[in-house]
């Protein structure tokens, strides 16, 4: 069947305009990377802002490694959860005794984030929204053994070359 040249290109354009699946973990990787290396103090970037960044992170760090028998190295992980309507979000998991008070997340325009330092190991965790609503992390593997009826996620910190 004959198709006009402009129609062919138009079909290409419509095809290319469709959304593309981007790894949902990308946000967390970006935040984790920048959390490890604050911006340099160049061209007017005030030193105190870098210090403030460190202070914010420092205030929400929880370092309570329980897998001390493997290695002493630990990773600072940034957890991110998007919930524009939420009034509060807490990160709860094997690394903070599942205590919502231990890792309240900070919000910016509905993107909730917190950083936790973890020793090598496999950890189950979930987000508690508004103190009642349990949510798994859409950007992480799901824990298969949800014996308590709500979904959890899994994060693994490796000990070799990770």
């Amino acid at each position: 069947m004959f198709e006009r040249a402009d129609d062919v290109v138009e079909r290409v354009i419509q095809h290319l305009r469709r959304p593309v699946a981007i790894d949902p973990g990308l946000d967390a990787r970006v935040l984790r990377e920048i959390a490890q290396a604050p911006p340099t103090n160049r061209r007017g970037w005030p030193l105190w802002s870098a210090l403030a960044a460190a202070a914010v992170l420092g205030a929400i760090l929880i370092a309570r490694p329980w897998s001390r028998d493997e290695t002493n190295r630990s990773d600072l992980l940034q957890f991110v959860f998007v919930a524009p309507q939420a009034a509060s979000v807490s990160l709860v998991g094997d690394f903070n005794d599942w205590d919502p008070a231990r890792s309240p997340m900070q919000t910016a325009q509905g993107v909730w984030a917190t950083a936790v330092r973890l020793a090598p190991g496999r950890y189950r965790y979930a987000f508690l929204v508004n103190g009642v609503d349990w949510r798994a992390d859409p950007g992480a593997p799901t824990a298969r053994d949800d014996e308590f009826g709500t979904a959890s996620s899994v994060v693994t910190v490796g000990g070799r070359g990770s």
Partner: peptide, 12 residues
Amino acid sequence: AGDIGAYGALVS
């Protein structure tokens, strides 16, 4: 001002 979470919003 040091709010890394705000950058998360821009990334998102």
